[in-house]
Design a protein around this nucleic acid. Structure first.
Length: 325
DNA sequence: CATCAGGGCCCTG
DNA sequence: CAGGGCCCTGAT
């Protein structure tokens, strides 16, 4: 266990040019995601820890552009010097994880014709599906989400950060960083149980193990068609019908990955799309399919995040009840 | 004090 | 394919 904080004193700037139109804030900060100590968003600046090629790095993203002339400053912080080729591959990885290269013209056209999304698009045009986490990290997140309230999920992931993660400081922030998977693989069951992970311990251990054996190769998986990818992801221990859509969408940017609705999401979509308390999941799924087709999950994401942004400035009682922080 | 569901999944019959 | 069990917590 390391409570020691590692300062990342080397810093490298690069410029990123997302495809226009681009929305910086909507892309780098997702208010519907639960808060955790590996990332922060303050004063328009996004910072997070990045475990990449066995290094623990700090990343800063800040906006230097406008919606139609997008430009981002990517700053990579490290405790050791980094080579140009490594910096280049970090840049490419960040561009992928934040989906900076996608062309959303067709999606925007569909949104403008849609009564529900039209006003939402006005606020968030250019927003990407984005996630700073690797597949492995997102599997961990999906696992701690299972059968738990948000508060408990946060408790579980923070317990894991404390026990297995690193602490880094850079750019005036102190953040946690994910652990190398073998530390979970080597940990004893009792040790993990002590972190109040419950029955998820088996899943977390098997996931870490399949990563270090090379059974999971994220870069290879990115090349698969969505249907093949879905089959592969469902083979991962602990990934079932609810989690697989999160992975397909957030990690692999498959914009149509919307085939399953969990009960709390069902309530939210019932409100947003039908102005009712509870609509049958199948009806919701049919509705989003006819409305938004192959862009249905991205469209739903816009609705969802827009709602959670509203929550920051106004009290939405029915939503508070569902979130149960 | 007990019981139960929660932002599921696996395993069994 | 339906249903039980699973870690833990907080609500009732």
């Amino acid at each position: 266990m390391t409570n020691r904080i590692t300062p990342l004193k080397y810093k490298y700037n690069q410029l990123l040019f997302p495809t226009p139109p681009f929305n910086f804030e909507g892309t780098v900060h997702k208010p519907s995601h639960f808060p955790s100590s590996d990332n922060s968003y303050k004063n328009g600046k996004c910072r997070f820890s990045l475990r990449y090629q066995d290094r623990t790095l700090g990343i800063g993203l800040s906006n230097l552009g406008t919606t139609y002339k997008p430009k981002i400053r990517l700053t990579t912080f490290s405790s050791k010097k980094l080579s140009n080729s490594l910096l280049e591959s970090i840049r490419a990885e960040i561009e992928f994880r934040f989906d900076l290269g996608v062309d959303l013209k067709e999606f925007n056209k569909i949104c403008r014709r849609d009564s529900v999304l039209k006003p939402v698009l006005k606020r968030w045009i250019g927003t990407r599906v984005s996630n700073g986490n690797s597949l492995y990290e997102f599997m961990v997140i999906a696992t701690v989400l299972q059968n738990a309230t948000v508060k408990r999920s946060v408790q579980m992931i923070e317990n894991m950060f404390k026990r297995f993660g690193a602490r880094i400081s850079f750019d005036g922030e102190r953040l946690s960083a994910f652990w190398p998977p073998d530390s979970i693989d080597n940990a004893s069951e009792e040790e993990l149980r002590a972190l109040k992970l419950g029955y998820r311990v088996t899943m977390l251990k098997r996931q870490a193990h399949s990563l270090i054996t090379g059974e999971i190769d994220e870069n290879q998986l990115r090349l698969l068609s969505s249907s093949d990818l879905k089959i592969k992801l469902l083979e991962l221990y602990g990934i079932g019908p609810a989690s697989v859509w999160y992975l397909l969408f957030e990690v692999f940017k498959r914009y149509d990955a919307f085939e399953y609705i969990s009960p709390w999401e069902q309530k939210i979509y019932s409100r947003l799309l039908f102005e009712k308390d509870l609509v049958d999941p199948k009806i919701i799924l049919d509705e989003v399919n006819t409305r938004w087709g192959k862009w249905k999950m991205l469209a739903a994401h816009y609705l969802f995040e827009d709602l959670f942004w509203q929550r920051k400035t106004q009290h939405i009682p029915w939503l508070e009840e569902l979130i149960r922080l």
